[in-house]
Amino acid sequence: MKLGVFTVLFGQKPFEEALDYIASKGLDAVELGTGGYPGNAHCDPDALLSDEGKLKAFKQAIASRGLMISALSCHANPLHPQKHIAKDSQDTIAKTIELANRLEVPVVNTFSGCPGDHEDAKYPNWPVAPWPPDYQEILAWQWEQKVIPYWTETGKFASERGVKIGLELHGGFSVHTPATLLRLREAAGDVIGANLDPSHMWWQGIDPVQAVQILGRAGAIHHFHAKDTSIDPINVNKHGVTDMQSYTLMLDRAWQFRTVGYGHDMKTWADIISALRLVGYDYVVSIEHEDGLMSIDEGFTKAVQNLQQVLVREPLTEMWWV
C-alpha cells in the first residue's frame, strides 16, 4: 500500500510548494481536486487539456518529487434537479475523466448525486425511511429514471477511456452505503466502485471493517480515504445520527470528523488496513483532513504519523511457516 493525501487542504499554497511539503512528509501519492465541491486550485482540467506543454510540466512536477496521482476528484451532484447545476457537474466529471485518461490516472472520485422527487423539482430529495410509502415511490423513480441511466452512460464513457469511477459513500446522496453502491454497480457495471471513506460509515452506524469486507469481496473498492469520526454519546441521543446542525457547532453535534486516531484507536485502524489487504486492496490510502479541532498542518501531520504505524507496505511473501 501507499500513503497519499487529498491535496484540497493545501489549496491556499502554490502547487509546487504544496508538493514539496507533501513529499517532505514521506508520502507517495496525491489526490487532486478538479472541480465541484473540492475546487480545482491545483488541477484545472480546462487548462491542462488545452495545452500539451502545461500537461507535461504538470506531470513532471509530480513525478520529480517521487509522487504519483492516486485519483482525480470532482465531488459534485450530477443528478441535481436544477438542470444547470446538474450540467455543470456532469461537464466537470466528463472533463475529469478525459484528464485522468491523459494523465494515466486510474480513478476519478465523485458523488453519485441525488435527484429531486419529480422532473420539475428544485432541490434534491434524500429518502431515508421506507414509510410512508411516498418515499418508496420517490426512491424507485430516482433510481429508475436518474441514477441508473446517468451512471450507466457515464460508466461506459469512463470505461472506454480506461478510467474507473470511485463513488464516495456519503449521506445526502443516492449511493451512501455498501448496499446502494453494489446495487448501482450491478446495474451500471464494474467500472463503478467505492471511494471508501470510513468516516461516513461510522456516523451511519456501519462498521468500516465490515464495509471493506462486503465491498472488497466484490472487487468494488477503487480508492480509499483515511478520515476518522467521533460520536458524542450524549448528543447522539439528542440529535440522532442524521444531525442537521452545522459542522461548526462542535460542542453540540452528535458526531464530528476527526483526524486519523482521534475518533477511533489505532487497533481499529490496523483492523481496517488489515481488512483492505485481506480483500486484495493494495493501492493508496489517501488522507482527508476535516478536523475542526486541529490546524491543517497539525491534523495532517498526526494523520501521517498514525497511519505510518499501521500501513502495510511490503508485498505479500510466501507463507514460509505453512
Rank of each mutant, 00 (worst) to 15 (best):
K2H: 09
L3K: 02
V5G: 02
L9F: 06
F10H: 08
K13R: 13
F15D: 03
A18S: 11
D20M: 08
I22K: 05
I22P: 03
G35S: 01
N40T: 04
H42N: 00
G53C: 14
L55P: 04
F58P: 01
L67Q: 12
H75R: 11
A86H: 10
K87F: 10
L99T: 00
V107Y: 13
S112Q: 12
D117N: 14
N125D: 13
N125T: 15
W131R: 09
Q136T: 13
E137C: 11
A140F: 11
Q145M: 14
P149M: 03
T154L: 00
G155W: 02
A158G: 06
E160N: 13
G162K: 05
G166R: 07
E168P: 08
E168N: 07
G172Y: 04
T177R: 14
T180G: 00
T180V: 11
L184M: 11
E186Q: 08
N195D: 13
D207I: 11
Q213A: 14
I214P: 00
G219K: 01
A220L: 10
H223K: 09
F224H: 12
D228L: 03
D228M: 04
I231R: 06
D232I: 00
P233A: 12
V236E: 12
G240P: 15
S246N: 15
H264G: 09
K267F: 11
S274L: 10
R277Q: 14
R277A: 06
R277K: 10
I287N: 02
H289Y: 08
G292Q: 04
M294N: 01
E298S: 09
G299P: 05
T301Q: 01
V304E: 01
Q305D: 14
Q309C: 07
Q309D: 11
T317Q: 10
W320Y: 06
